[in-house]
Amino acid sequence: MNPSVITDNLIYFLVGPWPQGPLGGAALTVILTVLSAALSGVLGLVFGVLLSVLRGPWLAVLRLGLGLFRAIPVLMLIFWIYFLAPIAFGLDVPGVGSVVAALSLIGGAYLAHTVHAGIEALPRGQWAAASALGLSRRQTLWLVVAPQVLPRMAPSVVNQWIALTKDTSLAYVIGVAELSFVATQVSNRVMVYPAEIYLFVAVLYFILCAGFELAAGRLARRYRSLPA
């Protein structure tokens, strides 16, 4: 083991060429994760509620769409957005944008089912009781259903962030200079000790993901001990 390859390049691993160049490395990984988490949260909430309230053909269309996003590899979706958006819409989507868009769509498709399952898990009597009191469907959703369902979803949402964090590494394939990409850069430049480099990078990812895992476990215990 040779630690000098790590210590010599530590700053580069963490922030890339910044401040001389654009921000990269672990910092960019965190930014990609946060952006995708926020966007996928919004998409998941909207699509999850729609899964619960839509009926008929629109529901079928939504199910099919979400199913497709869960069936294709993240890598394929990144390629679609990165290579085809410029051709199809004349939009030149930057690498970072492509990755965030792809991760948000796929993350949103998974979250939609979590939201939907959470809503369905609520006893039907709660809807009936709210409705018997004269609350409208919309009021019921926001005043009665959401406050009960959202906290219970917290552990799955945080678990979703683990998947997102790991998936940001795929930005490598279109040359976005996040942590995995700068790792290969360093590895190609120094030409020695690739094992040390990838182990160290794995540890950085592990710190992020294990932190989320710990938080998810805490949240799960907290909401399990909470009176139902």
């Binding site: 006893p123 009597g125 709660q126 009936a128 009781a129 709210a130 409705s131 018997a132 009191l133 004269g134 609350l135 409208s136 009665v144 406050p147 009960q148 906290p151 009176p227 139902a228």
Partner: peptide
């Protein structure tokens, strides 16, 4: 219908109080 329901009180077998309130 929602207006009308508000004038008809209903008590359920499983109470159906809102647990978060």
């Amino acid at each position: 219908l929602t207006r009308l329901r508000s004038r008809v009180g209903m008590v359920f077998q499983h109470f159906e109080l809102f647990p978060h309130l």
